[in-house]
Lab assay of single mutants.
Amino acid sequence: NRRVIAMPSVRKYAREKGVDIRLVQGTGKNGRVLKEDIDAWLAG
Rank of each mutant, 00 (worst) to 15 (best):
V10I: 09
V33P: 03
K12W: 09
Q25W: 12
D39I: 06
T27Q: 05
R2Q: 12
G28D: 03
Q25T: 14
A40K: 14
G44W: 12
V33S: 01
A6P: 04
L34K: 11
V33R: 02
R3M: 08
S9Q: 10
V24W: 02
R32Q: 13
M7R: 15
P8L: 09
A40W: 10
D39Q: 05
R11T: 05
I38S: 00
K12Q: 13
D20V: 05
D37Y: 00
K17A: 09
L23Q: 13
V24N: 00
K12C: 12
V19S: 01
Y13A: 07
A14Y: 01
V33D: 00
K17E: 06
R3W: 03
G26A: 07
R3H: 13
R3K: 15
W41G: 02
A6D: 04
V10R: 01
D37A: 01
M7K: 15
Y13V: 07
A6T: 06
V24R: 01
T27Y: 03
L42G: 04
E36M: 13
V24G: 01
G44K: 15
K12Y: 06
N1C: 08
A40V: 11
V33M: 03
K29C: 09
E36W: 10
E16H: 10
V10M: 04
N1A: 14
V33W: 01
G18L: 08
R15L: 13
D20K: 05
G26L: 02
G44S: 15
P8A: 13
V10Y: 02
R11L: 09
D20F: 05
D37T: 01
K12M: 09
N1F: 01
A14H: 00
Q25R: 13
V4M: 06
D39N: 09
R15G: 09
G26R: 03
R11S: 05
G26M: 02
V24F: 03
E16Y: 10
A14F: 01
I21Y: 04
P8V: 10
K12S: 08
K29L: 13
E16K: 12
K12H: 09
V24Q: 01
R22G: 08
G31W: 04
A43L: 12
N30R: 11
G18S: 07
I21K: 00
E16I: 12
R15N: 12
R22S: 10
V19L: 06
V33C: 05
R15I: 13
R15Y: 14
I38N: 00
R3Y: 02
G31M: 06
N30T: 07
E36P: 09
L42E: 05
L23C: 07
R22M: 11
G28T: 03
L23D: 10
W41F: 14
S9K: 13
R32F: 08
M7L: 15
D20Y: 05
Y13E: 07
G31V: 02
L42M: 10
K35M: 12
V19N: 00
V4Q: 08
I5F: 03
D37S: 02
V19W: 00
A40I: 11
K17I: 08
N30C: 09
G26Q: 03
K29A: 12
G18C: 10
R2V: 12
N1M: 04
K17T: 07
S9W: 08
M7G: 15
Q25K: 15
Q25H: 12
V24D: 00
N30M: 12
I5S: 08
N30A: 10
E36S: 15
L23M: 12
P8W: 05
A40Y: 11
N30Y: 13
E36Q: 14
A14P: 02
D20W: 05
Q25L: 13
Y13I: 09
M7P: 12
E16A: 13
V33Q: 02
R22D: 07
A14S: 06
G31S: 07
